[in-house]
Amino acid sequence: MSQDKAGFTEFFAASWDTCLRAVAASTGNMTLAEDQVAEAFARAWASWDTVSRHPAPEAWVVRTALNAGASWWHRRSKETALTSHDVAAADSQGTGLDVAVLTALRRLPARQREVIVLRVFLDLDIDTTARQLRIAPGTVRAHQTRAMTALRNELTAATITEIER
């Protein structure tokens, strides 16, 4: 089998950073995200005939990476019980991402976080996001509205706390 499946090399080079940033922002752990995204790209390579025809291959990689992470996270959560805030604060060290943003993202329900990752970080339109998540466009809008409200409130509160210190 040829190593260079048509188009994969270019896709990998162009999309690695975007996918890694989106997954790292969602999980709050760059080391874990790096492994998840590498795994997702490996699966994309193995299934390139299918993935290359996907309407949003970057979204396929990100969702695959996040799903792999969900399994990992579920196993880990049984071993170490931490609040979401503790997790964000501990894991964000070294990512370069604003801790307040990371904490706010981690506090969103999983589906809302997925919508933010696809709509905001990958800049997908509502219909493509809906197809990717297998939900109705109206549901995407509702999740996005709730997520943006929660993020705005969280980040405003974090800013006020920072000013008061």
Partner: peptide
Amino acid sequence: LRDSLCELTTPER
């Protein structure tokens, strides 16, 4: 949010 994401330093591919 997008700006914050762009500030994220990524390890070498």
